[in-house]
Design a protein around this nucleic acid. Structure first.
Lengths: 225, 225
DNA sequence: ACCTGAACACCGTTCAAGT
DNA sequence: ACCTGAACACCGTTCAAGT
């Protein structure tokens, strides 16, 4: 009978396998579970072996967020700018929702990766081709992304509220005399059957794209006197 | 001569002093520097003394984010809804910018604190008093907060880019052939003297408030056929 | 009642060693 | 070249002890 291997076979490790393992752990168990030691265990290897393929943990986290950007559908210059940006924003929301750790992680990362840069380039291209001036393009991009990021941030927060302390308990703890409007909103709307927070996404996306469209008018960005 | 005290004098500690120390450390050195041991050192005490006043670190972090919400000016029902909400959104942006760790922290916290609840109540009150239906109020609130949170998130990310690798270096590293629009935006706009990302905030706030205002029209939220 | 020391099970990372 | 063992300086948290 063959004895079990005392050490991991060689060449089992690679940069890509390390990033993939990190992503899997983050998706399944949250970002806190992503440790060098845990990644190594996932790949059947000791912690220190990881350092032969990446220089440190920050490098892994940088690649992790670029992996999320790589899942976002780029808008096409050939299509109508409104439809293309709507599709890209929906796709970005979905990617960020698939990886709830992404929004929080982005805030602490400094170096944008290649997929992130490519995504930026595509959106800028669509806006410029649609006739937005350079300043209008900068505003439009910032405002559109603000909406998507902020919406996903709220969705993620709501998920945690629901997981940690079941919404009904929470609603019951609100004092109706102190918080009449919160009570009204919770009991008459949020807790009703058809309600889903996510439905506000399309409403907001439409409003935001409409608003951005007004920046095509050259007079719109003139400083008010 | 009196010998230095071998231990900290009694009653130096309190829940409020612990939270205040945590906030100071987070503001000065970032969220990662907020450790029980570091808080204790800041207060001239051993780590374990902290546990006599809070049950665990999560409790400190929960209070920390509610402290940020307590800095946000609430909108008044007496004023015009548009002005009041604009003031509240500007105030929220400023509070979140003063404490750059806040947005990232919120994403992982489940229990909204009293200041957070009071802020929600005030915004809901203004929207309902202005004539927004309950569903329109829910949409308007979600969309407005999405914009503010997302905008601040981007501002914080940009700060880190600037701190870590000075923007010119980064701009120089972009291949103009691969990223023509990114190059155009960077060289002709972002790096010019008058440019500030923050200027997009007022533009976006106006667009978003305009868009939300349309939800006052009862036909606006009807499902399109 | 309030603070401390020692300990436990974790981190990221370095350095010298094995094959 | 690639993986490992031992060590260092950290974490949050528990538990028994001091005053």
């Amino acid at each position: 009978m063959t004895s079990p291997p005392a050490r991991a076979p060689r060449n089992t490790l690679s940069r890509d396998r390390i990033i993939a393992a990190a992503k899997k752990i983050a998706d399944d168990e949250g970002l806190d579970a992503v440790t060098i030691r845990r990644i190594a265990a996932e790949l059947g290897v000791k912690a220190m072996a990881v350092y032969h393929h990446v220089t440190n943990k920050d490098e892994i986290l940088d690649e992790l967020i670029d992996l999320v950007f790589s899942e976002v559908e780029a808008p096409a210059i050939s299509g109508p700018w409104r439809d293309e940006l709507a599709r890209r924003c929906r796709s970005m929301r979905e990617a960020l929702r698939r990886h709830p750790w992404a929004v929080g992680l982005m805030e602490t990362r400094g170096t944008p990766g290649p997929a992130n840069l490519a995504g930026h380039e595509a959106v800028l291209g669509v806006l410029r081709a649609a006739g937005f001036s350079i300043p209008a393009t900068a505003h439009a991009f910032a405002i559109l992304d603000a909406f998507v990021y902020g919406f996903v941030l709220q969705e993620t927060m709501l998920d945690i509220v629901e997981i940690t302390e079941i919404a009904p308990d929470f609603a019951a703890a609100i004092n109706p005399a102190l918080f009449p409007h919160l009570t009204e909103m919770t009991t008459q709307h949020v807790m009703s059957d058809g309600y889903r927070f996510a439905d506000s996404f399309e409403v907001g996306l439409t409003l935001t794209l409409d608003g951005i469209g007004r920046l095509l008018d050259p007079g719109e960005l003139a400083a008010p006197e």
